[in-house]
Amino acid sequence: MLHAFSFHRNGETEYFVFDCEKGSLYYADFPIFLLVKQLENKLTEEEKQSLNRLPSETVKDAREELNSILETESEKAEREKFEYKGKNTTVKALCLHICHDCNLCCEYCFASGGTYKTARQYMSEKTAKAAIDFLIANSGFRKNIEIDFFGGEPLLNFDVVKSAVDYGKKQAKAHNKVLTYTMTTNAVLLDKETIDFLNEEMDNVVISVDGRRDVHERVRKAVNNESTYDVILNNAKEFVKVRGSKRYYIRGTFTALNTDFAEDVKVLSDEGFHQISIEPVVLPKDHKLAIRDEQIPQILDEYERLANLYLDRFGTEKWFSFFHFLIDLENGPCLHKRLNGCGAGSEYLAILPNGDIYPCHQFAGEDGFLMGNVLDGRDFDREIQSRFASVNVTVKSECKDCFAKYTCSGGCAANAYHYEGDITKVYPTSCEMARKRLETALVLYAKEKDKK
C-alpha cells in the first residue's frame, strides 16, 4: 500500500512516498506524487488538472518507475504467509495507582482531580507488594516486566513508592526477572531526596508541564488555586540537570485553547528541556477545552510548523526530540508488536489503590471493566482479558487501508470505548493526527539520515 505526501519548508515543497506494508520510504518528484495520490483516490481537483497538464512522456516514464516499486503477486503471497501470533495473555506491565489524590486540579484531568470520581485513596504497602507478587506470578515466560507509578500524584505516597521499588527489586532477582520502573509526576513535590531516588530507580520519568506560562496556568491549577508554574518549572529543571542523558519526558497537553502548541514546545526547548512531548486532550465534545472538528486542519498544520522548528534546532544547543516524531524504521519493533499496540487489558493492567484490577488507567473505576483484586488471591477475569486480547489492527475495518496502521496499532481502546462506545472501533480525531504525525516523523527520519 503506497501513500504520497508532501512537506513544506522555507517556501519549498518536497514529496515522499511511503510503502507501509514493506516499510519503504522514498523521495519522490511531483509526477510520482500525483500518480500515487491517484492510486489512493485522493487527488484534489487542482491536482487532477496538474496531472492532466504533465507531458505524456513524463507521465509514462513516471508510471513505469512507479510500477517497479508496486507489490508483485509473489511478494503479496509471501506477505500473506505471515502468521500473527496474537496478543499474549501473560501479564507484562502494571500501572500502579499508588495514590488517588492530587495536589493539582487540572481542568482536563480524566481522573477527576486524581480521585477517579471516588474517595481519596492511598495504596498501602501491603497492596503494593501484592500487586508486585501478582505481576511476577502472571508474567509467565517473560523476563522483562514493568511497573509504572501513576496517580493522582504518586509522590504524595512516596514512602510506599520506595518500599514497592525495594520489594520489587528483591522479588525480581529471586524470580530471574528484569523489572523496570517508570513514573508520571506533576513535579510539585520534587526535591533533592525524590530527585535522587527517581533518577536512580526510574527507567523513564514523565513530568507534566504544558509549555507557556499562561497556557499552563489556565488549566493546571493548584488545589488552592495558586500558581504552580515557577515551582514546577524549577523542580523539573533540577531533575533534568541530575538526569543527564537518561530518559525523561516533559509532557504537555494541548487543548482547544492552544492549537498553536509548537509555541509551547519552543518555550520548553528554550527552558533547556530536550525530551518533549505534547499530547492532544481527549474530552467529551461539549467540554470547553475539547478539540473541535473544525480545528483539526489547524492542528495538522501545527505539526508541520513544529517539524520545521525541530529542523531549525537540529544539531544546535537547543535541539529537542519530540515523542511523536520518533521513528526508527530500520530498528523498529517487529510486526507482531506493531499489531499488538499497547497491550492494555491483555498484558498491561492497572491496579487501583484498593487492589482492584482494570484493563488500564483510562478504564479505572469504569462499570463492567473490573477484572478482580490482587488481594483476594483468586485469578482475574480472563473473559475481559480475552476480549481485549482479541482487538488489534487486523480486526478494525477502519484501519485496513490506512498507511499508519503499523505505527498507531489501531489507537487507544479507552478513547474508542469512551467516545465511540466500543473498544473495537477507532477514535477518528486521533486517526487524523496519527497520520500527520507519522508523515512528519518520516520526513524528519529522511532528513536526519541525509545529515548522517
Partner: peptide
C-alpha cells in the same frame, strides 16, 4: 531511478514476536 530515490527499503520485520518489548 529518475523520479524516486529510496531512503530505506523493506524494513518491516515479520519475524520476532518474542513478547519482551515494552507494553502507552
Amino acid at each position: 531511478m529518475k523520479h524516486l530515490k529510496a531512503i530505506v527499503k523493506d524494513t518491516i520485520r515479520r519475524d520476532g514476536g518474542c513478547g519482551e518489548c515494552q507494553s502507552c
